[in-house]
């Protein structure tokens, strides 16, 4: 559960939003804070990319697919695991999905 701008936001036990419509930029900030990440522009461009991906395909991308998509859309320099890990710790696809208000990517057992 999160408290954002006086509103209670329900999350599952791993911290993913229960209702995807609850997401806002403020909610993203709150989730990121819990994960000890302070969001900067490089974070946001990944978050918006993930939300676009979900809009288009109804799923959150697996890591390999996230790397590929970032490379295609934001340039080769950014389309690397190392770069994404520098922003979102050791599990970028999972953490960025969580902050972007998406379900967990389908590659996590």
């Amino acid at each position: 559960m999160l408290l954002v701008e006086g509103k209670t936001i329900n999350t599952d036990k791993e911290g993913y939003l229960k209702n995807l419509q609850d997401w806002s930029e403020a909610v993203a900030e709150a989730i990121a804070q819990q994960e000890q990440i302070s969001l900067t522009d490089p974070h946001w461009e990944i978050i918006w990319l993930m939300r676009d991906f979900y809009q288009q395909f109804e799923i959150a991308p697996a890591m390999r697919v996230l790397v590929k998509t970032v490379g295609q859309q934001l340039g080769k320099e950014k389309g690397r695991s190392i770069y994404l890990m520098s922003l979102f710790h050791e599990s970028p696809a999972k953490l960025a999905s969580k902050i972007a208000g998406l379900p967990k990517p389908t590659n996590c057992l």
Binding site: F57, I59, V65
Partner: peptide
């Protein structure tokens, strides 16, 4: 229900 037919388009990326 969820429109999972949109997900088929992601198969190429996968």
């Amino acid at each position: 229900m969820k429109n999972f037919s949109k997900t088929f388009a992601a198969l190429e990326l996968y």
